[in-house]
Amino acid sequence: MIVYLRSGGKLCDLLKPDVDEYTRKVDVADGLSIEEILATLGVAPVMVAFAFADGKVKRLDYVPADGETVTLQSPVAGG
């Protein structure tokens, strides 16, 4: 299935966007969770706090649908 991973900041360096400045298109096996997709790309889970898709915050065990765009958030903790 095709999944579009959107990101910003340091995550962009890791994900190597190829669709536009922020988005990477990946072709992965059906049924993989976000965490499993990140593993296939060599991105450590600690680099991603949560994701969002369809207007909702998603945990990394979320399984995207074919063609879905998922935005990844780095941990944000500054004040």
Partner: peptide, 19 residues
């Protein structure tokens, strides 16, 4: 419920106007 315990290195770089 929605922020996992993944503490990034501190202090985080930040643009002043973001804060």
């Amino acid at each position: 419920c929605f922020v996992p315990r993944k503490e990034p290195p501190a202090p985080a770089p930040v643009l002043g106007c973001t804060a």
